[in-house]
Nucleic acid binder design. Structure first.
Length: 826
RNA sequence: GCCGGGGUGGCGGAACUGGUAGACGCGCCGGACUCAAAAUCCGGUGGCCGCGAGGCCGUGUGGGUUCGAUUCCCUCCCCCGGCACCA
């Protein structure tokens, strides 16, 4: 028997070439059986080398997809590139290399490396958002939304990044004032920009979350971001009823606790209501507020300030006058820009009256009495000092007072959202041009569908202009005949947010070469919603929200029949090095290349799956990959040592050996299949591999190196190893393919079917039952399965040292958990 | 502050609906093989006490429910992520 060494570098390229030659991963989309669209978030080609993060995400995702295919499903696993965007453009500005050139080069290099992963990607169906064949349809989407009134242009205070020289969407501003892309501090500017009306879908975006199988964390992030507040708008008459002010509150049950109203400094009614005696101070206050940055104004630490307007509003229920203040902690952008001040039951209002020495009126008593009056009580409780409502539960009053206000015409039930419309225009070069023409006669005119794409010109000075889109410098691009009247007009110089590109790419994968329509509706009906999506949680309120919006909007415009794009979602964790995120500036980047050169792609994949819990990630350890590489060698040796079992000339025997060792192997075999099956299905790769390790260990136990085997044993051992190879196939695809052939089978192992287990075999004849005395484990016994409770109790009482432990004491209670334990209480 | 997630051996991490805590692996200790080492194969490995049988303790803290709690309830502490004058 010659020893054949496991050499990943010989095996891996060989099998990848075979798979490619056999067109193995080109899914027949029309003839799909039980379709499984396995989607990974596509890649951003900003560098040309894959990093550990790519492998950590894509390797396990492919393992999951391979598992599904082995289970008999038609699996579609595409890959593409999110190629437009800031990093490529900033790189271009820095180096002078055109973003198209660097991006195209990076894509080629990345594909080459991605192929070494041995994944099932269908490279015939790939896409690149920076290609006209793709962005033509991104522009088409824009026009569809525009026609439906879901894309509109308006002047608004928007976030501006001074470093990237462009506006940003709210979702791209982190921690209140940091650019998601470059980390610079952003500022507010009043600009005319394009928006998508995502707020029209706020309710559906919220409610739809109840019907998708996503991590709770992610759903919570989206829910908080959308921020639905159900409340009531209350009308306040000012003076003799000439003017009225609307406030928004979620707590109308505190209405009798109102001691002031406060308006945002930008509130439009201020000029009308302020009295002459207070006008100078109020104007000065407003001017001060205007000068303060958004950051300073919205800082929770800042001492609250305000100015009395001299005006009073009439309390809608009591008719009492309520002083009206202007205060900068009230935001013009939320609700009605005016609030009812209830210092007793709102933290901010409490701070406000503390700073300005205004009165406090308590109207809700907490259930517990140990709450002092040195802070606001924001919970619910019993209503006091509130006219006819006194004595009610505050929750009750909330509904009642809302109904009463509505009936009297002094209020209406309203819902407010934190979500704002999606700002999609960017003053940058490297993106899809907005397909709008500005005509001095006709105004904004959409480009005709047949004139799409509006091509992004290559030959443009893409250096950063002072707040202007680089495209604006290109007369060749800008000057165009008005599509409506034919007179000279100018194109919109902005490009679209790259999140527009990525909001629909998954629809395009199914028919990436179709130049007649953006997507093939029949195929989408068959393959969508996407059965399984995987990617980083950092997109929880960006890409994942935008894509959901886009699908819903396209459904309403009659282009789709689905309401949610992604049925199931998982997030990979992050791999760190020495406890911190890998980055070039920290000089702690782990390069996959070195490890793959040393251990092979299978070992690299397997390490990432075994060394971490997929959704958690963790710190890179060199010893970890060494260990898994050694284990793959161990697997190889196991099969290699027993090659003669598959010798054609040897006579094969059926039947199972009836020995203790054989029964044990049989049991572990079926237990491993069960465990690996369940764990792979739920992305628990580390435990799936643990189950396979147990099987390998058991095979070694069963056939120690020096021992000869009986023919019957050979049959069982052969089955065990063949099963083991198939269980390993999704994880280490190259090695498994090789072993599958070594053991006399036809490739590919990915179509060899998934092993099944026999639940009857797992139901062993004997079970170990634990005996507890007073809750402590004292002994255990082997008994026949499914023994009656009475018999188990009787045996336990007589077993081993149990009688001695009980020492004649009366057993007061006995609990029997069938086939597991018996608990004796004395 | 609010919302979400999490705290388990020296380490990575397991544990189904409450039922033997620590699977699997790393590391470490021991054995076999070897002139030797590496590699490999086999065994051991939560802590403390004990020659031993065995006992006690142990899943961030303190309490509770239960025959039995990593799991359920309450209190508090710490870590991670998100949101943050959103009314």
């Amino acid at each position: 028997m010659t020893e054949h060494r496991y050499d990943p570098h010989a095996i891996e390229p060989k099998w990848r070439a075979e798979w490619e030659a056999g067109d193995l991963f080109r899914t027949d989309l029309e003839a799909a059986v039980n379709p499984c669209y396995a989607l990974v978030m596509f890649a951003y080609p900003s560098g040309d080398r894959l990093h550990v993060g790519h492998w950590y995400h894509y390797g396990p995702a492919d393992t999951w997809a391979r598992f599904q295919r082995m289970c008999g499903r038609s699996v579609f696993e595409p890959f593409g590139f999110d190629a437009f965007g800031l990093p490529a453009e900033n790189y271009a500005v820095r180096t002078g290399i055109h973003p198209k050139d660097s991006t195209d080069r990076n894509v080629v290099n990345m594909i080459e490396q991605l192929k070494t992963m041995g994944a099932m990607w269908d490279w015939e169906r790939t896409l690149n958002t920076s290609q006209p064949e793709y962005y033509k349809w991104t522009q088409w989407l824009f026009l569809e939304l525009y026609k439906a009134g879901l894309a509109y242009r308006r002047a608004a205070p928007v976030w501006w990044c001074p470093t990237d020289q462009t506006v940003l969407a709210n979702e791209q501003v982190l921690e209140g004032n940091v650019c998601e892309r470059c980390g610079a501090l952003v500022e507010k500017r009043g600009l005319t920009q394009w928006f998508f009306k995502i707020t029209d879908y706020a309710d559906e975006l919220l409610d739809g979350l109840d019907h998708v199988d996503w991590p709770i964390r992610t759903k919570t992030l989206q829910r908080n971001w959308i921020g639905r507040s159900i409340g009531v708008e209350i009308d306040w008459q000012v003076g003799d009823g000439e003017t009225s002010i609307k406030t928004f509150t979620t707590r109308p049950d505190t209405l009798y606790g109102v001691t002031f109203l406060a308006l945002a400094p930008e509130h439009s009614a201020l000029d009308d209501i302020v009295t002459d005696a207070h006008r100078a101070q109020v104007d000065a206050y407003r001017e001060r507020a205007r000068r303060l940055s958004e950051i300073e104004r919205t800082s929770t630490d800042a001492e609250k300030t305000g100015e009395f307007t001299g005006a009073y509003a009439l309390h809608p229920l009591t008719g009492e006058p309520v002083p009206i203040w202007v205060a900068d902690f009230v935001l013009a952008s939320y609700g009605t820009g005016a609030i009812q001040g209830v210092p007793a039951h709102d933290d901010r209002d409490f701070d406000f009256v503390r700073a300005l020495n205004l009165p406090i009126v308590w109207v809700i008593e907490p259930a517990s009495t140990d709450i002092g009056r040195d802070e606001a009580y924001t919970g619910h409780g019993t209503v006091v000092a509130s006219g006819p409502y006194t004595g009610m539960r505050s929750e009750e009053m909330l509904d009642q007072v809302t109904a009463d206000l509505v009936a009297k015409g002094q209020g209406k039930a309203t819902v407010h959202y934190r979500l704002r419309d999606w700002l999609i225009s960017r003053q940058r070069y490297w993106g899809a041009p907005i397909p709008i023409v500005h005509c001095s006669d006709c105004g904004e005119v959409p480009v005709g569908v047949h004139d799409l794409p509006v091509e992004l010109p290559y030959d443009v000075d893409f250096s950063l202009g002072a707040g202007k889109s680089p495209l604006e410098r290109s007369d060749a691009f800008m000057n165009v005949a008005c599509p409506s009247c034919g007179s000279e007009a100018r194109r919109d110089p902005d490009t679209m947010d790259t999140f527009v590109d990525s909001a629909w790419y998954f629809l395009r994968y199914l028919s990436p070469d179709d130049d007649e329509r953006p997507w093939n509706r029949d195929l989408i009906d068959r393959w969508c919603p996407i059965y399984q999506y995987s990617g980083g949680i950092e997109h929880a309120v960006l890409h994942l929200l935008y894509a959901r919006f886009m699908v819903k909007a396209m459904r309403d415009l009659g282009h789709l029949d689905i309401s949610e794009p992604f049925q199931r979602l998982v997030h990979q964790g992050t791999i760190t090095n020495r406890g911190t995120k890998m980055s070039k500036s920290r000089d702690n980047v782990i390069s996959p290349d070195n490890y793959i050169d040393e251990y092979g792609a299978d070992a690299f994949r397997a390490y990432l799956m075994f060394g971490f819990a997929f959704t958690e990630g963790g710190d890179w350890k060199d010893e970890g990959i060494k260990a898994i590489a050694a284990w793959l060698q161990r697997v190889w040796r196991l099969v290699d040592r027993h090659r003669d079992l598959w010798d054609e000339s040897a006579e094969r025997h059926g039947g199972l050996a009836d020995s203790e060792a054989a029964r044990s192997l049989q049991l572990v075999l079926h237990r491993s299949v069960k465990g690996a099956t369940e764990d792979l299905a739920s992305w628990q790769f580390n435990t799936a591999i643990a189950r396979i390790m147990e099987l390998v260990n058991e095979c070694y136990q069963y056939a120690p190196v020096e021992e000869t085997r009986e023919p019957d044993d050979a049959s069982l051992l052969r089955t065990a190893m063949e099963t083991m190879i198939r269980l390993l196939a999704p994880i280490a695809p190259h090695l498994s393919e090789e072993l599958w052939v070594v053991t006399g089978h036809q490739p590919p192992v990915v179509d060899a079917g998934w092993p099944e287990y026999d639940p009857e075999i797992l139901r062993t004849e004997e079970v170990t039952v634990v005996i507890q005395v007073n809750g402590k484990v004292r002994d255990e016994m082997r008994v026949p399965r499914d023994l009656s409770d009475e018999e188990v109790e009787a045996r336990a009482l007589a077993h081993g040292r149990i009688p001695a432990l009980l020492d004649g004491e009366q057993v007061r209670k006995v609990i029997v958990v069938p086939n597991k334990l018996v608990s004796l209480v004395v």
